[in-house]
Design a protein around this nucleic acid. Sequence first.
DNA 1: ATAAAAAATTACAAAAAACGTAACATTAAT
DNA 2: ATTAATGTTACGTTTTTTGTAATTTTTTAT
Lengths: 194, 194
Amino acid sequence: MKKSKTHIKVVESAKNLFWKFGIKKVTVEDICEEAGISKMTFYRNFSNKQELAKIVIQNLTEEGLANYNAIMHQEISFAEKMGKLVLLKHEQSQNVSMEFIKDLYKANDPELRNFLETHKENSYKRFFDDLLEAQKTGQIRKDIKISFIMQMLDYFSQKMVDDAFLSQYENVHDAAMEITNFFLYGLFPPDDKA
Amino acid sequence: MKKSKTHIKVVESAKNLFWKFGIKKVTVEDICEEAGISKMTFYRNFSNKQELAKIVIQNLTEEGLANYNAIMHQEISFAEKMGKLVLLKHEQSQNVSMEFIKDLYKANDPELRNFLETHKENSYKRFFDDLLEAQKTGQIRKDIKISFIMQMLDYFSQKMVDDAFLSQYENVHDAAMEITNFFLYGLFPPDDKA
DNA sequence: ATAAAAAATTACAAAAAACGTAACATTAAT
DNA sequence: ATTAATGTTACGTTTTTTGTAATTTTTTAT
């Protein structure tokens, strides 16, 4: 076997804890307790928390990519795909701890920073290309710039964490639906609208 | 004014952080950052984190009591009250961090332990008396021991965090409804059943 | 406008927590 | 039975957090 059970257990435990508390607040011994192993076995498998954090982050970005692919490769309309992406993103941002985001943001490990930067660029490019392809096959109006769509998506995800905006709706879900609908109905080719 | 704005801000911030991360994981500076004050102003208002934690816990127990009272004093049927209590309790246990519970459990401050112990006893007694009163007024079968009901409630709240149990249901809400229904239908006076 | 009060900033020593390792005991696997 | 892997204990080192003092800035009241 490639990865030992211990290895898997530790990575899973760390993933859960980092997700909830961020990286800084979680100690190696917290991880060991969660994984049900001793501190020594931890250090026999990983050199330190930093290295483990990298593995976890790599795992998480891979999962994110897998989720994206799972949606984009479904045999559903482009509109449905967009709806699912918005819901997925919102679902994740609801669960992940702000601490985790903060810790990633102020990571001073150059290798990690570089990895995150590259991943961000790749994701952006990937999504951009998929939208471009969708536009070519007539699923998005031809007279709209893809980069404009990307900017709008950025703006929408900002709105979804803006209390002043959210307070205008009964609940978060209503707000998400409003945004999604606006996004989709503005996106449909003219002949699909009626 | 009795409590300064600073005092209130700090207590609120600490409440949020403790609730999410537990007491141990949260540093005084985390609290200051959240409250938007400097460390010095913190120490001018509170002697240390321990004292603040006591205030926060006292606040939380008071809130819990207020919630309980709000439900029990409504002009609704006893069955509805029980339903609301189960939902409230479940809602809270969903949100509160396990870390917080752990930290409370292993608190070694004698004053705090005593406070928690007393509060637990009082709550228990209070609920016991309310149930007894409900039995007197015919809202609960006369041929059932109140202490037995309390034991059942304990058992039910255990079930609500038991993965083996929850996995039998589509979602947590279904499980909660199953328990609530079982609890209520077994509780109704015989002539209300049909 | 100015004096007094409150809060922020900076710096720092002391205490506590977390890290990482070594030696040895125990358990599990083959 | 032997080897490999994990657990236990203990400990020195490093890092973080704590709590305070001195000083500057901001706010409040007069």
